[in-house]
């Protein structure tokens, strides 16, 4: 299963690129000029995203540095331990939507302190692997087209993350808890 997927992952891009280029050739498109014309936009997209990325990444990193997360951690710690959820994974649950690099850091910490074969590490792996950093995705995707009124986008992302965390706990309990 994993080998098949790996092979697909490696071959899919070359196949897509060849299909697009050969179809362009068949339609007599000036390939090189058209490519460069499109590629020009790459720089401006990055420049357009930049202010949104600064706004969101800075606010999130300040929030993390202030110790506000530790406060949330203290509140939720006791009820989670009562549900037999390793309290270290709580930091991960709270950080998951906020920061991708912080999530990977916390995940590595959990794996190192509890061991790669522990229940905590497996639960952490499922939580980390099953979601994307909501705040970053919003900054990049909406920033690129200048959307500032998000409507329900953020709430949707956060609610879906919560659904994911609850599912991760239930599914991991079923697969790994002994």
């Amino acid at each position: 299963m994993k080998e098949v997927l790996n092979t697909i992952s490696v071959w899919i891009l070359p196949v897509i690129i060849c299909v697009i280029l050969l179809h362009g050739l068949y339609k007599k498109i000036p390939l090189y000029e058209t490519f460069c014309d499109g590629a020009k936009e790459g720089f401006w997209v990055a420049v357009k995203i930049l202010p949104y990325l600064v706004a969101i990444m800075v606010a999130v990193s300040m929030f993390r540095a202030s110790g506000a997360l530790e406060f949330l951690y203290e509140i939720f710690k006791t009820p989670l331990e009562a549900l037999k959820i390793p309290s270290d994974t709580l930091a991960l649950m709270i950080t998951r939507s906020l920061s991708g690099s912080a999530t990977l850091g916390i995940f590595s910490d959990i794996v190192n302190t509890h061991g790669a074969d522990s229940y905590a590490a497996k639960l952490a792996a499922v939580i980390t692997g099953s979601s994307e950093t909501t705040f970053y995705v919003i900054a990049v995707y909406f920033g690129a087209v200048g959307i500032t009124k998000l409507r329900h986008a953020l709430l949707t992302g956060v609610l879906a993350d919560m659904v994911g965390i609850v599912c991760a706990v239930i599914v991991s309990r079923f697969f790994f808890y002994s």
């Binding site: 068949y26 499109g38 590629a39 790459g42």
Partner: peptide, 13 residues
Amino acid sequence: AFWLGIVKIAQKS
């Protein structure tokens, strides 16, 4: 830049 270039070709063709 790379993908937007490729996509531009696919768009035109």
